[in-house]
Simulated assay, not measured.
Amino acid sequence: MPARDTPAEPAGSVSESPESTPTAAPKGKLRLPLLLTIAGVLLALDLLTKVLAVANIDPQKPVRIIGDVVTLTLVRNPGAAFSMATAWTWVLTLVAVAVVIGVVRIGRKMRSLWWAIGLGMVLGGALGNLIDRFFRSPGPLRGHVVDFVSVGWWPVFNVADSAIVCGAILLVGLTLFGFEPDGTRATSNARNEDS
């Protein structure tokens, strides 16, 4: 008995319905090692610069780098950025611990290079200031953070602060443009579902 001919599908047609097409799995390798490397480098840089600042800068005699615009000024900050919440040092310490735990949890499944860079910066900065909170005077959970870079009207900051701010800006940008930590892009997925 002759085999039945099946009608040929027209060129460009799709044999599966959109509902049966599986969602693309995240591509790329896990980025936790990169995240931890960035965090480790920034942490080491932060600790080194703080040790050098404490050893070489007299709090009463700022070191001028570019006139009065950029100076090295040693300050011990009990509060958050801009010296806010100075009476809540222990709360800031607990928030920093929560940030570190959250970043590591997200990082275990991360496949995005840019998310790894941003979170690595936030993690390195959070750890740098957290070490000050635990090990500097007046005591554990209440330690004052060493700040030493002064630029114009901006409050005095350190390497950890810079890393946190730059990492946070990068993460906000990635979120706004739809880049997910798993390496996918939310806007392109939404367009695929709409079509």
Rank of each mutant, 00 (worst) to 15 (best):
M1S: 13
P2F: 01
A3D: 15
P10G: 13
A11C: 01
G12M: 10
S17E: 10
T21C: 00
A25S: 10
P26G: 03
G28C: 01
K29A: 12
R31G: 03
L34I: 07
I38A: 07
A39C: 12
G40M: 01
G40Q: 09
G40A: 13
L42P: 03
L43P: 09
A44E: 05
A44I: 12
D46W: 10
L47V: 11
K50Y: 04
A53W: 11
V54P: 07
A55I: 01
A55S: 14
N56P: 04
P59L: 00
P59M: 00
K61S: 14
P62D: 11
R64N: 13
D68T: 10
T73H: 14
L74S: 05
G79P: 02
A81M: 04
S83H: 08
S83N: 15
T86D: 06
W88H: 10
W90S: 15
W90E: 10
L92C: 10
T93Q: 06
V100N: 04
V100T: 09
V103N: 11
V104S: 04
V104A: 07
R108A: 12
M110C: 11
M110Y: 00
S112K: 00
S112C: 00
A116W: 08
G118S: 06
L119F: 08
G120Q: 08
G124L: 09
G125R: 03
N129Y: 06
L130H: 05
G143Q: 09
G143W: 08
H144E: 14
V145L: 05
V146E: 13
S150Y: 00
V151K: 11
G152E: 08
F157D: 09
N158F: 04
N158V: 03
N158E: 04
N158C: 06
A160M: 02
D161H: 06
S162F: 03
I169A: 15
L176N: 08
G178R: 03
E180C: 01
T184G: 02
S188G: 04
R191Q: 05
D194R: 14
S195F: 09
